[in-house]
């Protein structure tokens, strides 16, 4: 691990603002692994980042497994929630999405199949806190 940072927000507005600040660090080739339980706000967070990057129509990829948006760059929004094995992911072709140098990848429930994740990645862990906001842990791996 190269670095770890913790951000604490008090409400949805602050969480969205934190996402927008992080978005500025995302460039093509960035791989972001989203970690957090049901209702932690993973899709909300991705939407806030993606909108900052000029993408519209961001919604949950749970059913589709992969959503694709065009903003300033190409964005792949994946979700492992409904996936049952790493084999299924290879069959879906996740490696091709991850290897696209022109795109930014977001993967929700990424910790379900850590063996599929690239070594160089940003992990974003979301956890609801007492204040009604989120505790956001950002870990960078090189």
């Amino acid at each position: 691990m190269k670095s770890e940072e913790t951000i604490t927000t008090r409400d949805e507005v602050e969480t969205a603002e934190a996402a927008r600040r992080l978005a500025r660090l995302f460039t093509p080739g960035t791989f972001a692994a989203l970690i957090g339980d049901l209702g932690a706000g993973k899709t909300f967070f991705v939407r806030a980042v993606a909108e900052t990057l000029g993408a519209r129509g961001v919604s949950s990829p749970t059913f589709a497994i992969v959503n694709e948006y065009q903003g300033d760059w190409r964005i792949y929004h994946l979700d492992y929630y409904r996936v049952e094995s790493a084999d299924e992911l290879y069959d879906v072709g996740v490696e091709e999405y991850f290897a696209d140098p022109e795109a930014i990848c977001f993967v929700e429930w990424a910790d379900k199949f850590p063996e599929t994740l690239p070594a160089r990645r940003v992990e974003i862990e979301l956890e609801p806190n007492e204040a009604g906001g989120r505790t956001i842990r950002v870990r960078r791996y090189e």
Partner: peptide, 10 residues
């Protein structure tokens, strides 16, 4: 209009 996050079935 459409959903901005989860689908109804989801």
């Amino acid at each position: 209009g459409g959903t901005v996050d989860d689908a109804a079935g989801e």
